[in-house]
Design a protein around this nucleic acid. Structure first.
Lengths: 204, 204
DNA sequence: AAACCAAAGTTGACACTGTCAAGTTAAGAT
DNA sequence: ATCTTAACTTGACAGTGTCAACTTTGGTTT
């Protein structure tokens, strides 16, 4: 377990974390298609099947990577929300911009986090859900807070507002990172329009 | 070339179409992960590499499948739009509902049509683009028409309105079919809310 | 009618993938 | 000093996409 003494190569010491790290590197460099357990293992300098002592299968590894992604995104949301310099309206702006920016900066990770591969067929691990749900819930809580403060109609169901809101942000993000909206220079402009649309009849 | 005389088995006669058809069946049955060229070929009753005479590679086959999907979706949009019984507002309702319904009915096909696999890295075929772009453009044209008729603010950039609108619809659809929004019974409710949100300060 | 060509379909081969079973190493507890 | 057990390795298997070389066939040209 000595990271300093590098002599003992048989036991890696911190393989699980290293695998997650390097796999995420590979994901960002060449996309999900190039993330194979064998290439990963060889790049980390370990045998083909070593990862199986830390992850049940490839799906579990992918879930682990997505998990870290949700922690990042959650952190970004928190930071924006806790910035006391901003008005409510600015908080809302910032949420949308930061969210889409995150997706744009980490397209393959974002794809992984929200993609079918991980979520359908109940193939998500418990750990993934434990990291993703609080992130989702934080977004609902923020929306609720904004609603209370007059940004949205208080009569509307808060969950629905938040679902439509997240849908919009998620949809725009995906259309960009999947290469269907191709003009990246227009991201901010589209974000701005989305914001103004949501706040069209807000009193604040 | 005789479909009736089934004796000559060497030449299939209509392999390209059959491959697209059966591949799409496989997609709907067991998801993209179970669509392999070899299983497809064997199911069609042809050798492993026969498909290569009709599609450059697997990607081209997938593009071909998506192509058909866009034709379907385009048709659905047209049908809804050309229904003369409906008011403008109802047309708008119908577009959103039909769109999300299509995605919900064909989750894997929808995933394929709009996913990274096909669009990123310029890996889309010319034929796919020729079938997808008119479909996208029709949606922009509809939005423009609605804008003219007073559903949206005429001062806003029509392309932006349409991009945000499509983003919302696409995002909600994806969150459902990817298994992140899990309560399918709430689809209509969310659609309704999205519609009312977009038309909050419409004059019509 | 004979010869020919190009399209359509075949088999063999290769490198790559995820994953299992069985064996090896070594770190830490008794 | 011994033992347990987690971490790691090698060998093996079935499955994948795709290439090259070969065979069959239908239609066109002489």
């Amino acid at each position: 377990m000595n990271k300093l003494n590098e002599k003992s190569t048989y036991h890696h010491g911190d393989l699980r974390e290293t695998l997650l790290l390097v796999a995420t590197e590979m994901l960002q460099e060449n996309g999900i298609k190039e993330v194979s357990l064998r290439k990963l293992a060889s790049r980390v300098g370990v045998s083909r099947t070593a990862p199986y002592h830390h992850f049940k299968d490839k799906n579990a590894l992918l879930c682990g990577m997505a998990e870290k992604g949700f922690e990042q995104l959650h952190q970004i949301n928190k930071c924006g929300y806790e910035d006391e310099e901003l008005s409510i309206r600015e908080h809302f702006y910032r949420f949308i911009h930061d969210y889409i920016q995150f997706a744009h900066n980490n397209p393959d990770l974002y794809e992984l986090m929200f993609g079918r591969t991980i979520w359908k067929d109940k193939s998500s691990t418990q750990e993934l859900r434990d990291s993703a749900y609080p992130c989702f819930q934080f977004q609902v809580a923020m929306t609720q807070e904004w609603q209370k403060k007059g940004l949205f109609n208080v009569d509307d169901n808060a969950l629905r507002v938040s679902q439509v809101l997240w849908g919009t942000v998620h949809g725009i993000a995906k259309l960009f990172i999947d290469g269907i909206y191709t003009d990246n220079s227009k991201i901010d402009e589209i974000c701005d329009y989305a914001v103004s649309m949501f706040l069209a009849n807000s009193k604040k």
